[in-house]
Design a protein around this nucleic acid. Structure first.
Lengths: 115, 115
DNA sequence: CACCTTTATCGTAAATCGACGATGAACGAT
DNA sequence: ATCGTTCATCGTCGATTTACGATAAAGGTG
């Protein structure tokens, strides 16, 4: 029971991390996030920064939005995109302990592995 | 010059983050990393843990190895996979400051964005 | 109302991904 | 030398990604 329940929790957390990490896994999208970290932007401004077609940028924005990284607020004919600091922190605070644990756990530096 | 140079540095760093994040962007690969964080394993042991075909697991291991997350040492007919704690820390120490910065930078919580 | 701007979506094409079974190579054991 | 084990790779399949141009919708401006 306990095993199954914690496995479910782990699976859910894994999927959450995977979803956000996957969205982070493209240089253009990292560039978009960095741009939005300076200030909120409309799609056209991001198109100017990246040398990509408007439709391509719109796609990347959709991926980031669906993964939860950013929010998009319609403002007349424009859409104002903004980094979601809560989502960033959620990702941080779930991923960081995992990475820290992983960095510390290594039974191979002691010498013989697979003994 | 300075702008170009720093842009290059940023681009290189972005690609590094993207490469590792992309590899992290699949639940099965996160499960593999977690498994390897407990102890080094051969491919067959990971196949037992995940319910995936051996060839599929081997593919995931290849992705993780090429992204730098893990190392694989041939040991007779087996291959011993181990988490690379240095790579984990590299990722941590590049990503964390970025996320922290992103979490703090939000010009929208103050009210009017896109003003 | 007729324009212009902005952006999301559609359609498309090439590339990559994710999964699998089959196969062959490497190696240990009999 | 032959068998069994282990694993990487190949080929395949469908699904997804990434890029683009074209287009339509939404909403301002004249």
């Amino acid at each position: 029971m306990t095993t199954t329940a914690s496995a479910d929790v782990t699976a859910v957390r894994d999927e959450r991390i995977a979803r956000m990490a996957k969205a982070l896994g493209h240089p253009a999208r990292i560039a978009i996030l960095r741009t939005l970290s300076r200030r909120s932007c409309i799609c056209g401004e991001i198109v100017e920064v990246l040398s990509l077609a408007q439709s391509t940028v719109s796609q990347h924005l959709k991926v980031l939005r669906e993964a939860g990284w950013i929010s998009g607020v319609v403002d007349g004919p424009r859409t104002c995109y903004a980094l979601d600091p809560e989502a960033v922190n959620d990702f941080r605070f779930v991923l960081e302990p995992l990475l820290e644990h992983w960095a510390g756990a290594c039974d191979c530096s002691s010498g013989s592995c697979c003994g």
